[in-house]
Design a protein around this nucleic acid. Structure first.
Lengths: 346, 346
DNA sequence: CGGGAGACGGAGAGCGCTCTATACGGTGTC
DNA sequence: GACACCGTATAGAGCGCTCTCCGTCTCCCG
């Protein structure tokens, strides 16, 4: 075992000042003579002092930690946490969320605690974690609209910010994207390219975002002379994109423009389109959604609707921080605008 | 603001016993009359008490938290943390690591703190985090063999376990895979299928694991009458797999068996093989490595060498836990065996 | 040159918990 | 009936830190 870690007391003795003074220096508080500051700093250096966070947290009532909670389906009890975690991270989306969060947190020497919440037990675990003061607040990313966690958090009056507007109104801050407008953008681009037979590979319709993307696309198409829109539902995975596009192709061999609700499915659509002898974008134009890494690494690179996930995630943490410090008391929401990114598939 | 959270004291008053007794009940310690236990439990229920972790951590000197550190390249200063995080999670590998870690931690009501360490500053941050007692130990997953973090951790005598043996001998526990044996397995399978012109899409040769996989494959091939092995180096990404396989095909149009150092590159290889008119596995057999999700979702499903990442990650945490509790004092290592998974590409 | 204002450092009281030492009954033994 | 003993509850001393007072020292102005 290594010797006991040095404490404030030790540093104070070493520097010949009181504990309070060292504390002031460490926390960069006013009213310390620069000469003494120097002295203290040297003493800290010499002793290799690192403030004990538990002690600090005890008195400040702040853990300086936030939880990043990824919520799963809610019911399927057959799914293990392991599988869920792996699946969550298979989607580049979560990597981007983590990115944005870490980008905000790092300059503050904070790091997120990763939690997965699928079952009621898990949700209780999240609540307990926060109530014990192990984290000051939670960032919640749900994969389903009717996730019960937000309501629980709000009820317990715990600081939390959501990614995406909750299905039931909940007094919690959230950030979101104007998905409907994204759908509109996709439709207009396809229309402008002269698309005559549009179709869509939608995301799971249990997810609000999927519904909205589709609604925006469909409405715009309807307003422009395409009242009937063939739609196949996918599950945001590559496979499901392949399957959905295959089905669309079977039923409507003449489609010439497809809006896929995410890039992964757009990639799948491109694959099967090529397999079935269609050229992309010459025979069929394809637009994805997200502008994730694959949109660029795909060949040909995907035309897509950009969702600034990293920025959105950073904004989430910023708002959460305001709630934690008490700067902001009322829930707020920030809605980001999607952007059309034209590459080669449309 | 909500009212002050209830403390042990409050519960004790409510139950009509002393603080110490409540503490015993909460921590499940011996020597408490069942009747009083019941009483205390009810009081806890009524008050909605949740033990303050900071206070507990202060006296137990344990945060009940571990850090999961993902180490990057080390130097490229052009790379932002954001990009790094996103990239790290683009690889299904990390999702599996997280899976395994969470699988072990969850039953213990623990959750990992996610940290990224690329720069010297980041590494210092990790050290400080541990020295402050915010986490009891670290799980380190380095993407490069010569990462300086393990040595720093060992020097500071902080509990840590590595994924993969460090390049320089370091007094730290680690888990690893017998990569060389994985290469051998791949070679033998290809040989058994009657492969006459083997080649390999290697991983980045700066990574020890890549070297070993290739060495095992090459040695086995050499021992079986294939002294010369065409090799193209990739970067573990889909794109690099496509590029490497393309190059191999240009220089050796007659290859009939390829060992790719991971599934992503194997998938890329399959893609370009098909584009160039080769049937997989009839004209060219392909074997991947990892048995990650894509191996299964790929069409045709990949024959691959399985690396039990989740198990390995869980084992890492188990060992770390032993180090933290002091059950284990000396570094140890656990090397897992790879396994050939035959699907359709070879 | 006295006095008030300001700048600065120190003493000490906790934060909520754990855990050791101690008190306290009740039983069994001689 | 005195003593030892065991099981169980309590008192109380911190863990290392922050932060509110309060005392001291300096400086400047009347």
């Amino acid at each position: 075992m290594s010797k006991q870690a040095p404490t404030l007391e030790d540093v104070a003795r070493e520097a010949g000042v009181s504990r309070a003074t060292v504390s002031r220096v460490v926390n960069g508080v006013r009213n310390v003579d620069p000469a003494i500051q120097q002295l203290v700093r040297q003493a800290i250096e010499r002793t290799g002092y690192a403030p004990n966070r538990a002690a600090r947290a005890l008195v400040t009532r702040r853990a300086e930690t936030i939880a990043l909670v990824v919520c799963g389906a809610g019911d399927p009890p057959h799914d293990t946490h392991e599988a869920f975690a792996a699946r969550a991270f298979a989607d580049p989306f979560f990597g981007r969320v983590v990115s944005g969060v870490v980008g905000f947190l790092r300059p503050r020497s904070m790091h997120p605690v990763l939690m997965f919440a699928e079952s009621a037990e898990d949700r209780h675990e999240v609540l307990t974690y926060l109530r014990q003061g192990r984290a000051d607040g939670a960032l919640v990313v749900s994969t389903h609209a009717d996730d019960p966690l937000p309501a629980l958090l709000a009820e317990a009056n715990l600081p939390a910010v959501l990614f995406a507007r909750p299905a039931r109104p909940t007094p919690l801050s959230y950030v979101d994207l104007d998905h409907r407008d994204g759908g509109r953008l996709a439709a207009e681009h396809l229309l402008a390219r002269g698309c005559r037979r549009p179709a869509s590979v939608a995301g799971p319709l249990a997810v609000t975002a999927s519904q909205e993307r589709l609604a925006g696309f469909r409405d715009t198409m309807a307003r422009n002379g395409h009242p009937y829109l063939p739609v196949a539902e996918g599950g945001f995975t590559l496979d499901s994109g392949v399957a959905a596009m295959g089905q669309l192709l079977d039923e409507h061999p003449d489609v010439d423009g497809v809006f896929a609700a995410n890039d992964l499915m757009a990639q799948g659509a491109c694959q099967i389109l090529r397999e079935r002898g269609r050229r992309v974008p010459d025979d069929v134009a394809v637009i994805g959604f997200d502008d994730s890494g694959i949109a660029l690494s795909c060949r040909p690179p995907l035309t897509t609707i950009r969702q600034p996930v990293e920025q959105m995630a950073a904004e989430m943490v910023r708002i959460l921080d305001e709630h934690i410090t008490g700067e902001r008391l009322e829930p707020t929401c920030v809605v980001f605008d999607p952007e059309l990114i034209v590459r080669e598939t449309a």
